[in-house]
Design a protein around this nucleic acid. Structure first.
Length: 776
DNA sequence: TCGTCTGGCACTTTTGAATGGC
DNA sequence: AGCCATTCAAAAGTGCCAGACG
């Protein structure tokens, strides 16, 4: 069963949440490596504290958990890369994943809404190096990084929405910038990672809806690099990625072209030098084709043009000419057509097959008249995945080398595999426990094109916080497929083990007390070794309950001064919790999460200076708890599968329903994965209609989403120490705003979307000026 | 010295605005 | 005026490469 964590302080309206959901790994970092299936905090907490809201007796809330399936649409492409050893470029600015995660969901309740999350967890504790054509572990992994989760821009959307189209996480970016403020997923270079996709039911965006399903596709494991190490990967990427088309054999940036340019550049410089020293080489006899429009020549415009080829001063003139001078004049139009035609037949998934158009292109030794560069369209070597030998990968600590690669020919093979049931609970911390929202960062997507412009407040209809009650319903095991058997329930000893290592008292009442009983020492890969050799997921996932009271100051200490993040300030019970938005206009830079009443401890989000936020949604008191890991520590056995699924459900509800104000429907926003949605009036969308049956739920965090801790890393983090002292190296951004135009925002943030877009709207554009656009 | 990272480059695709025709 | 198609430019994505860095 999966434990559940809620963030009541984040008021989410019926519209979509922000795209990127950050979580600082601090929380999990100072969690001991307990059996992941154990929710020690949940069990340790008094029932009244961890009681999740009851699930309404709404038949629609009962989803066929067992039927939820996820398929990797581009599994064949992934397997091609996996067979070689997938490498993912990470850059400071963030790099998209390629191949991207293209998924297909099924088995969802069409009427319920779900949130899709993507996170990437380390697979082991090793750092790798590409030596001798193989990836070898050369040392221990680097320090933990702030964990971030990318929320699919469409989230939350109905099951019908998710199932009606392919789901892509191509907007997610990877970065090695530990101080990244753009909301990208931060990873270490030369480390191995495993993406995970989580499907979380949210009957409305204010509350977990009752289930979560986590999916892992082993073939999507990858190694992060700042520069490709394996040439085969490079070749695959070039042949598969449209953006790298220019580097294909027929492209202007192909190896031949680049070599030619390089030679040309050298020649130009050399000739220039020669010309300077040799009057006989008069540039007046230059051959136009050589330099007239060459970009390189343009760059060297100040330099004399190439001398006559007959000039004996060209060092490598002969070979140079042989290489560059086209046999036939280049017809740009023809070349373009050939290029286009050749691309048509190239499939991203199984492409790299020669195409008819290429045949034409192959015969064209081209020279671009426009840029003066010889354009070659040499033979396009068909890339066959089978031609790439499996890159040997470290055997000692990872399963990557022996990663089972299911038959790529059949997408149906990618059946989700259920993890063992994980202790589920929706722990709610007592009012004395401060939710560790500092562990969570939220990217603030840039405003998507939304047609909804309802001026009314989306938060105004929040019910009285005190009216909301929660109770815990034991989570049910919801195996998805027949492969469930491979994931037997975690041993019951996990709980005891946790209890042996951590006490509730220490968690709740000794904030500064260092965590005791760290079960795994640094450099220990035992957890991984114990897992299936073929597939180590799920790794140990020590979740951090982080129930220690966190004062606003503590949280503020977390905030990186330079990070344009959403500063989150949480206070203990009864105290208002504020969120600062440094990256937004001053009048918007504070979100106040106030506990309406001590008893209810409902956090209310306030957006100062915004009338529409005067009435913020209330939060349950347990929203900020960080229950222990919900992931299995190490599944005893693993049957190779293209997809592992962790399914769990928990049910909680608020005792009082809050009418949901109309808001933007996910479908009203641009769908980055598929075609754009037609504009839809908010009121026309049942889910966002005030009369909709959804209750004002809000959940932004689920403990099962906590990253797996590297068991080998020393966990000297205090179990309840102020978070600020835990991650000095990686300042956390408790609540970060990131721009992503294709995503929606939670109600409290939604106003930020409703701003006039100045200048060129771009997915990665900067924050927008909100001053000139009416909000709600 | 070596391995790794970074920024710039040239290329491509994508995207949205601008334009013109109906 | 509205719709549609086309064109154009800007932005972003991509791998490569030289140089910087530790």
């Amino acid at each position: 069963m999966l434990s559940v964590e809620m963030y009541p302080s984040l008021t989410l309206g019926p519209q979509r949440m922000g795209d990127c959901f950050y979580r600082d790994r601090q929380a999990s970092a100072h969690m001991p490596l307990f059996p992941p299936a154990c929710d020690v905090v949940a069990k340790a907490l008094p029932p009244r504290l961890m009681a999740p809201p009851p699930v309404p007796n709404d038949p629609t809330t009962k989803i066929p958990k067992n039927d939820v399936k996820m398929e990797l649409e581009n599994a064949s492409l992934w397997k091609q890369f996996s067979s070689v050893g997938t490498e993912m470029i990470i850059t400071k600015k963030g790099r998209r994943m390629f191949p991207g995660l293209r998924l297909k969901l099924s088995g969802l309740n069409p009427s319920l809404r779900y949130i899709l999350l993507l996170d990437i967890i380390p697979l082991d504790n090793s750092r790798y190096r590409f030596q001798g054509g193989d990836w070898q572990a050369v040392g221990g992994a680097e320090a933990k990084l702030p964990d971030r989760v990318f929320i699919h821009p469409d989230s939350p959307a109905t099951g019908a929405h998710w199932q009606s189209r392919n789901i892509s996480f191509h907007y997610a970016k990877l970065t090695n910038n530990t101080l990244d403020s753009q909301g990208h997923i931060i990873l270490h270079s030369l480390h191995r990672y495993q993406p995970r996709v989580h499907v979380i039911e949210a009957r409305d965006v204010l509350r977990w809806g009752g289930g979560q399903h986590s999916f892992v596709f082993p073939e999507t494991q990858f190694l992060t690099v700042t520069a490709y190490q394996n040439n085969k990967i490079t070749e695959l990427k070039i042949n598969s990625n449209p953006f790298a088309k220019g580097f294909r054999d027929e492209g202007m940036n192909s190896k031949k072209q680049r070599d030619a340019r390089q030679k040309r550049k050298i020649s130009v410089v050399t000739d220039t030098l020669d010309i300077v020293n040799c009057d006989p080489c008069d540039s007046t006899e230059l051959q136009p084709i050589t330099t007239s429009t060459d970009l390189q020549a343009l760059a060297l415009a100040s330099l004399p043009q190439l001398p006559d080829p007959s000039c004996g001063f060209r060092p490598d003139g002969a070979s140079y000419q042989d290489t560059l001078v086209p046999e036939h004049p280049l017809d740009l139009g023809e070349a373009f057509m050939a290029s286009q035609i050749s691309d048509i037949g190239i499939s991203m998934a199984n492409g790299m097959q020669d195409t008819p158009g290429r045949e034409v292109a192959n015969h064209m030794i081209e020279r671009s008249d426009t840029i003066g560069e010889p354009a070659y369209t040499s033979t396009f070597s068909a890339t066959n995945s089978s031609s790439f030998p499996l890159a040997p990968l470290p055997q000692s600590s990872s399963s990557f080398p022996s990663l089972p690669v299911p038959d790529s020919s059949d997408a149906s093979n990618h059946q989700p595999v259920d993890y063992p049931s994980i202790l589920s609970s929706s722990p709610t911390l007592s009012s004395s426990s401060t939710p560790s929202l500092q562990q969570t960062s939220f990217t603030f997507p840039t405003p998507p094109p939304s047609n909804s412009s309802s001026p009314q407040s989306l938060l105004s209809s929040s019910s009285s916080p005190s009216a909301n009650t929660y109770h815990t319903i034991p989570e049910t095991i919801s195996p998805h497929t027949s492969t469930d058997a491979s994931f037997p329930a975690p041993p019951s000893t996990c709980h005891s083990g946790l209890q042996d290592q951590i006490s509730v008292h220490s968690l709740l009442t000794q904030p500064s007390h260092p965590l005791q009983g760290e079960p795994i020492s640094s450099g220990n890969n035992s957890s991984i070794d114990q897992s299936s050799a073929a597939f180590i997921y799920p790794n140990t996932l020590p979740a951090n309950p982080d129930p220690a009271p966190v004062t606003a100051q503590h949280l503020l200490n977390y905030i990186h001064p330079q990070a344009p993040s959403l500063a989150c300030s949480l206070s203990t019970h009864g105290a208002p919790t504020s969120f600062a938005f440094p990256s937004v206009p001053p009048h918007m830079q504070n979100l106040s999460f106030s506990n309406v009443s001590p008893s209810s401890a409902h956090h209310v989000l306030h957006l100062p200076n915004l009338s529409h936020q005067a009435q913020a949604a209330s939060f349950p008191p347990s929203s900020f708890t960080h229950p222990s890991s919900s992931l299995p520590h190490a599944h005893p056995s693993f049957q190779p599968s293209s997809c592992l699924a962790v399914s769990s459900s928990f049910q909680q509800s608020m005792s009082s329903a809050t009418s949901m104000p109309p808001t933007a429907h996910p479908q009203n926003l641009r769908n980055p994965c598929t075609s754009s949605y037609p504009p839809v009036e908010m009121g026309a969308i049942p889910q966002f209609n005030p009369a909709a049956p959804y209750l004002p739920e809000m959940v932004l965090h689920h403990p099962s989403l906590l990253p797996q801790l590297d068991p080998s890393l020393p966990s000297s983090l205090p179990s309840s120490a102020p978070p600020s002292a835990l991650y000095s190296a990686f300042p956390s951004y408790p609540l970060r705003l990131c721009q992503d135009p294709h995503s929606s925002l939670s109600i409290p943030f939604r106003h930020l979307y409703r701003q006039h877009q100045h200048g060129h709207a771009h997915p990665q554009g900067p924050y927008l000026d909100m001053s000139s656009r009416a909000v709600f």
